[in-house]
Design a protein around this nucleic acid. Structure first.
Lengths: 154, 154
DNA sequence: AGCGTATCATTCGTGTACAAACAAATTTGA
DNA sequence: TCAAATTTGTTTGTACACGAATGATACGCT
């Protein structure tokens, strides 16, 4: 049976290529790290979800943009950013206007409420990052962010 | 106004605590790293989603368990693992039986098909991890996994 | 024995995520 | 200039993910 074959291979090779341990796979740990971050985020910023926050923060950073473009800036595909914008719009945190020259485009920008909200939340967002990284020393944090960025950008 | 205060703080503190750059926040980069991994996973293992794979791999590792327990092992809450198991069950990759002594429990185990599938996919799963980590050197990979684990476990 | 509490599974509601198919508007290129 | 390719946004369908509520069962303690 494959169980015995597997044991043989484990004993033979140093790397034990066959010993698949789920809890050591990047994807699995990445998912758990994400879960922990989401939980910290939710405990500090209950008004918005992380994607909603990202969209508002980006709008605050770059000003008015088209919906799809905003999606690219916050790494969400067209279908996803649409849902996020819809929910922000329903709460009047963003304003949608038609683009002047290109009638396909929908220009998104912050409403006054949206601007006030994001300004109020920015300090909390920094706290979220800090608490998420709390298990690491400052030195480890720097290393981690560097490597994580490399990984994310392929 | 908070704009000017903010500038003062930026000039005062070395860390420029107020200059919020979304693309430098852990949560945002974590989400992008996860996206890249998901995309690699999907390109190599189209038969299963990562949560489905995790459930099968864990079942292969530990044998029969209750539904909720399996959820804990793969870091999914009761509602989430139920959906995952439902879909695996619909494809006859797992078998559900009532627990003997505890009538609340539902014992989940691999079907023959499920076992065959997971055995066939394990090498691909290792490839997924490898490709995900490809942007890092072996030394960086070791460091990264150590720090990521620390982060995930809080 | 009985009662309060904890556990297990299910359900509901909301919010990402992404693929695929589509319509409308714009841009490109022959 | 006009048809083809591309871009922008929308819709549909599937699959997590989690909080909260519910019902059934099991367990601990008196």
């Amino acid at each position: 049976m494959s169980g015995e074959q597997s044991k043989l291979r484990v004993l033979a090779g140093g790397k034990s290529a066959d010993a698949y341990d789920l809890s050591e796979q990047v994807g699995f740990i990445l998912r758990k790290a994400n879960q922990r971050h989401l939980s910290i985020f939710a405990s500090r910023i209950s008004d918005l979800t992380p994607p909603q926050f990202a969209a508002l923060a980006k709008l605050y950073e770059v000003g008015a943009t088209s919906q799809n473009q905003l999606g690219q800036l916050v790494a969400m595909d067209a279908a996803t950013i649409k849902g996020v914008i819809d929910r922000l719009k329903a709460r009047d945190l963003v304003v949608l206007e038609p683009h002047g020259r290109d009638r396909r485009r929908l220009v998104v920008s912050l409403s006054d409420d949206g601007k006030a909200l994001i300004e109020a939340l920015l300090p909390d967002a920094l706290d979220v990052s800090e608490e998420t990284l709390a298990p690491l020393t400052p030195r480890e944090t720097a290393t981690f962010l560097r490597l994580l960025t490399k990984l994310a950008e392929g």
